[in-house]
Amino acid sequence: MRTKRRNRVIFVSSLIASLSVAFTFIVLAMNENVDFYYTPSDLTGSKIINKDSLRIGGLVQEDSINISKDSLETNFLVTDLENSIEVYYEGILPNLFKENSGVIARGFYDYSDGIFYAKEILAKHDENYIPKEVKKALVNDS
């Protein structure tokens, strides 16, 4: 009986010890500020972000898409409704890429000319499922 209790004490104390260490590490990790992607305001702000590869997210600004006719080069503006950034991309654009819809670009930001050179463009999938008629009505109202 005594050995059984001692064994349980060994187990429970190590359980508590390692779980509290694990918890400490989680708290430490949460204190780290991690940005999975940046907004145009982050990049145009005063803090300089120097990374080989980063992601920006935002909306494609209206009337800003410039698609070159004889090559795959594209220019457009990504905006978070406060600031906007010019994005340069060479490649095939995804189907769902259009004005006023969400986009995420991966690439690097050149501070000298203020252009974001994208290596990859991802259209943000619309999470709203709306019938066509309703959408039309909404558009007509506004």
Partner: peptide, 22 residues
């Protein structure tokens, strides 16, 4: 490894380790 996120992942890995032990 070049960015500051590296600590975030290392802390989480450590947390996963200590969580797994018992």
């Amino acid at each position: 490894y070049k960015n500051e996120e590296v600590l975030f992942y290392i802390f989480l890995l450590a947390a996963f380790l200590f969580f797994s032990i018992p």
